[in-house]
Design a protein around this nucleic acid. Structure first.
Lengths: 244, 244
DNA sequence: CGCACAGTTGAGACTCATCAAACCACGTGG
DNA sequence: CCACGTGGTTTGATGAGTCTCAACTGTGCG
């Protein structure tokens, strides 16, 4: 037994990877959240930390996937081209969301993942799942919950953002964006991105944003950020639901 | 060794449940497809066989889920109400698709599941997943693949059926429906259902169907079935993609 | 300064929703 | 048997909502 003077408050972690994960700000929301320090120490695969600039691609559809990812900061969009060659944004991933999990099943990626803002992610190599099923089978259940969460997100995106008149879809988008806020500022997509999310033209998106600014629902300190006045937004959503 | 005259061609299964599953026509597409007879014999939970009439509900959102289901025959729709109280169909499930898997994670159902046609399903009790993780951990990986497949379906539904002009969405729906065909007849949704899938009114849906009948893409032996002329459909889809 | 590019705004065309009426296939009850 | 209502479907006329095309305005950058 080591002398008391050198025992740290937390158990010492000999695996440097474990130390990084232990200190990670979002660990309690992430896959490893349920692991204690000791268990963390037993993870042997290399978990890399990636940093992306807006517009940079995290992975591409059809690419043979070699890793899944956990978003630590920023917003990532999942997109796909349909048969007419138009790009469609399927959904957004933010802090603590996991994407590209299909790679862990040996499948190719199902969509493109592109950074919308500055983004930091953890890269979880494909082999992690093998290690988990051997050493931490409990985490497989957690993985399933991640899948279910992705499915829930997809379903919600479809019901809320893909139906009804353009104005209503835009209002719902603002509500959705507010979920990705850090502080009172929220990332504001380009008009092109809005179009790809809501299936409308950039002109319509622009008109709607301008309109909401005039109504005092939004204001835009700069081109890529927006302050959303939630009370006004909610009021608009209500009026719009039963008013039409 | 028993005398040759009494040895069955397949090994004898003592668990009556196993016998049912072994004889199931879709077993090789289903969760238990990878199990051999012996392993099948070790499944102890009770897997019930359900039969539903068109319009009958399989489960409802918010209901505390007690089971997942595998579709053996027929078509089931997953639907949800959005904030404006309109029902939206999220996707369809057919032969060998699994639904309600969230129940296995102890969660409530994320949507309503309703039979569109006559339907037969297997009911897989929630406790099955515990049994699997204890006795057949390999199947957990298979379960994950099911989740990924559901996610892929959701993403495809969104990209193909939720964007573009009404006519194009209707054409894509016909293509999608043809995946659920048995024989040359395919289930034809009601106009109300089409509206809930494609976000259009029943009038628009009706007009488009009539138009496609006139063009020789569809014909309807009876109200609830359609014969789809795939070559004409494909031609229409192509013209529609680059023509507009 | 001038170019490139995203965003804004307007006018007209077209798609689709709305409202209304008629039709059809049913089953019910007189 | 037929009249009758019911619920889903079809069709038409009209108007609202979006797209398209076009011009213009900003903003950043060489």
């Amino acid at each position: 037994m080591p002398s008391a003077s050198v025992i740290p408050l937390k158990p010492m972690l000999f695996n440097p990877q474990a130390q990084v994960c232990a200190d990670c700000g979002i660990r309690r929301f992430s896959l490893f959240g349920v692991l204690d320090h000791q268990a963390l120490d037993n993870i042997h695969v290399h978990i890399a930390d990636l940093h992306l600039q807006p517009g940079q691609s995290l992975y591409s559809a059809q690419g043979q996937g070699s890793a899944a990812f956990t978003v630590r900061t920023g917003v990532v969009r999942l997109e796909r081209s349909n048969d007419r060659g138009e790009r469609r944004i399927l959904r957004l991933a933010g802090r603590s969301d996991m994407l590209g999990m299909e790679a862990m099943l040996g499948q190719s990626y199902a969509a493109d993942a592109v950074a919308c803002t500055e983004v930091t992610v953890c890269r979880l190599p494909r082999t992690l799942i093998d290690e988990l099923s051997r050493n931490q089978p409990d985490l497989l259940l957690d993985m399933m919950k991640r899948w279910q969460r992705a499915l829930d997100d997809a379903d919600e995106w479809l019901t809320e953002l893909c139906a009804g008149p353009a104005r209503h879809r835009m209002l719902r988008l603002m509500l959705k964006l507010s979920e990705f806020s850090d502080g009172d500022q929220v990332w504001l997509p380009s008009r092109l991105e809005m179009g790809a999310m809501l299936d409308m033209t950039i002109e319509t998106a622009s008109r709607l944003v301008s309109q909401l600014k005039r109504e005092g629902v939004l204001d835009t300190p700069d081109q890529r950020h927006v302050r959303i006045h939630m009370d006004a937004l909610m009021k608009a959503l209500r009026e719009d639901a039963d008013g039409a």
